[in-house]
């Protein structure tokens, strides 16, 4: 039951990322702004904060790989980066008392680290030729803004869901 719920939510977010958001996101033809929804990653991070480290690692790898298969041409990059970042940030989160503000800061930091990892691997193998300045100037701020709004909107529902799942599994 626990796994079914988690899988359902993550799958829904995966579909929304790829099929619903591109329709609604404004297109910035006048500037090379890139606004990237990373909702699956946000939920994986929340799992590592509120549920368990190993579960978030497992789901991070599964859904990272699904993202790789469906939306990209190179396998394994997202699986590796989501898994690694979620694992590292679950340790970082132990140092803090978690409330909305701390979670927001931690998750935005996590998104930055995650995007940077993917960026490094992609520029290494030549998927993108975006320069580092473009990445920091046009991509990261817009991405953090979009995902920050998403985190604030969905912090309480996600936390309630995860704590409920955590309690029922004990």
């Amino acid at each position: 039951m626990k796994h079914l719920k988690l899988f359902f939510v993550l799958f829904l977010l995966l579909i929304i990322e790829g099929s619903v958001m591109p329709v609604f996101l404004p297109d910035f033809q006048w500037k090379p702004i890139q606004m990237v929804p990373t909702f699956v990653f946000i939920f994986i991070l929340f799992m590592s904060f509120f549920l368990s480290r190993n579960l978030s690692l497992l789901y991070g790898i599964i859904f990272g790989f699904l993202t790789d298969v469906v939306y990209t041409s190179i396998l394994g990059v997202y699986a590796f980066c989501i898994g690694l970042t979620a694992y590292l940030f679950s340790y970082l989160a132990r140092l803090f008392h978690l409330n909305l503000f701390i979670v927001l800061i931690l998750t935005l930091l996590g998104i930055s680290v995650f995007q940077f990892e993917v960026y490094m691997i992609y520029s290494l193998i030549g998927v993108t030729n975006q320069s580092l300045t473009e990445f920091f100037k046009w991509r990261l701020p817009a991405t953090l803004l979009l995902n920050g709004v998403f985190i604030i909107l969905f912090y309480y529902p996600f936390r309630r869901l995860l704590l409920k799942i955590d309690k029922s599994s004990d």
Partner: peptide
């Protein structure tokens, strides 16, 4: 029906 959302993979 879908689009790679990361802006790097233009698929």
């Amino acid at each position: 029906i879908g689009r790679s959302n990361d802006g790097w993979n233009q698929i």
